[in-house]
């Protein structure tokens, strides 16, 4: 198995005050029983540090969506350990999980998943409402998030009055508004045209430049190439983990290390 080399526990022990945002150990996921058993994940180890921009690529059936759903606390692994921001998620109850989804994770879906017949503003306010933020501040922060994705003028529009690109930008605003430790995007550009894709990727670059940790899934190479770290999944296992030149904060050292399929030590 080819994987990140210096991401072991000893690596974290050197920085006890800053646990990685994501620390996944020996993750497996099995669907079905008996002859219909499908091993979606066959032991995945992954550590993502704060401020990183990771793209996960892989053919369909490689387990990338499964990994993303487990990382986003939408699904539970069959075996393995998952620390999110230093917290062991598998030990949390339903209420605490809801809190984790609300505070630590911002999720962007391929299918946008906005609440229908509800304005863009109300959609963006939703996670804040579940977080118990007062109405006035909720509105202010939601408008600011919409402004960041360039949709402040469309705050009053309902999802069916927005284009796909606009809907996805609303979804990104909704993922950002709680200022989560981790932004997860499951093929965010999968349903978008090239123009909207470019817009969205620009927003992600900006976010990462501002220090936000982003993990996204894609099967488009040009989307994967924008990330600072590219992970390739094959058959439920990590086949490659490459550090590459990120567009925003890409340093000379990062660019030098931009060599596909060669495992790299991360530089921070």
């Amino acid at each position: 198995m080819i994987g990140p080399m210096m991401n072991g526990p000893e690596d974290r022990s050197t920085r006890p005050g800053h646990p990685p945002v994501l620390d996944v150990r020996g993750l497996t996921k099995v669907y079905g029983e008996g002859e219909a058993t499908v091993h979606a994940l066959r032991g995945v180890d992954l550590v993502v540090e704060r401020g990183d921009y990771v793209a996960i690529m892989g053919s369909s059936g490689s387990g990338k969506s499964t990994l993303m759903n487990i990382v986003g606390c939408l699904d539970v692994p069959t075996t393995g350990r998952y620390l999110l921001d230093g917290v062991d998620v598998s030990r949390l109850n339903d209420r605490q999980l809801a809190l984790v989804r609300n505070r630590l994770i911002g999720f962007v879906f391929q299918a946008f998943n906005l609440i229908p017949r509800t304005t863009a503003l109300a959609n963006v306010e939703l996670p804040l409402a579940y977080a118990g933020v007062p109405a006035a501040e909720r509105r202010r922060r939601a408008l600011a998030a919409l402004d960041m994705v360039g949709l402040a003028a469309r705050a009053g529009h309902e999802p069916n009055q927005l284009s796909g690109g606009q809907q996805q930008r609303v979804a990104v605003a909704r993922a950002l508004v709680t200022e989560p430790a981790l932004v997860l995007a499951d093929e965010p550009t999968g349903n978008l045209d090239s123009r909207s894709t470019a817009d969205l990727l620009a927003i992600f670059d900006e976010l990462n430049a501002a220090g936000r940790t982003i993990v996204l899934i894609t099967h488009e190479p040009e989307v994967g190439s924008r990330a600072r770290r590219l992970i390739k999944l094959f058959d439920g296992q990590i086949a490659a983990d490459v550090r590459q030149g990120g567009p925003a904060r890409g340093s000379a050292a990062d660019r030098m290390l931009d060599q596909p399929t060669v495992p790299m030590e991360r530089i921070r």
């Binding site: 209420r95 809190l99 579940y130």
Partner: peptide
């Protein structure tokens, strides 16, 4: 049910 899924993904507790 999808909407409930979205709300849960956004951190809505079951009780809410």
């Amino acid at each position: 049910t999808r909407e409930i899924g979205i709300r849960k993904a956004l951190g809505a507790p079951r009780r809410v």
